[in-house]
């Protein structure tokens, strides 16, 4: 003790990025992003409650290029956080802790999240000609 100049763990810059660590921080990042993104849901509902004009304004904003991009990011973040959250629930039950399984479930979660995002947008385009 007493030496305050020592490097502190986890000392991230010396580590090569690994799938496990990247997915772990991505779970937090998507969680924070989704928390902020929940404002979208509140705005949409509030506008709908207020009346046709405010609803049209919000729909216009969500339908813009930025709006669509945000929605795509939001849907992917949601599916990633949901799938990886279920991976966490399995860990909570004490399952899937060996290294091979941890990597396999990590890859699986990324593939499923991307697939569900694509399915969502394909469905939206097929049904209504575009998600907003």
């Amino acid at each position: 003790m007493g030496n305050t100049d020592r490097p502190l763990s986890p000392h991230l810059q010396v580590y090569k990025p690994q799938l496990t660590a990247v997915l772990s921080i991505l779970h937090r990042a998507t969680g924070v992003f989704l928390s902020i993104g929940s404002l979208l849901l509140v705005c949409w509902l509030a506008a709908l409650a207020k009346g046709p004009e405010s609803y049209a304004t919000v729909q216009g904003l969500l339908g813009s290029g930025i709006g669509r991009t945000l929605l795509l990011a939001w849907v992917f973040a949601l599916f990633y956080h949901l799938c990886n959250g279920m991976r966490h629930l399995f860990w909570d039950m004490g399952l899937g802790f060996d290294m091979d399984t941890v990597y396999a479930s990590g890859r699986f979660v990324v593939v499923v999240a991307i697939t569900l995002t694509l399915i969502t947008f394909a469905m939206a385009y097929a049904i209504r000609g575009g998600l907003l």
Binding site: Y55, A56, L62, L82, T120, I127, R128
Partner: peptide, 27 residues
């Protein structure tokens, strides 16, 4: 988290239909 899994699957599935709806349909 467990509660949100089915709720959000339902919500996103509905969103694909409702997101482009006009005011009356959405309401």
């Amino acid at each position: 988290a467990i509660a949100l899994v089915p709720l959000f699957l339902w919500f996103v599935a509905s969103l694909t239909v409702i997101a482009t709806a006009d005011y009356a349909t959405a309401a």
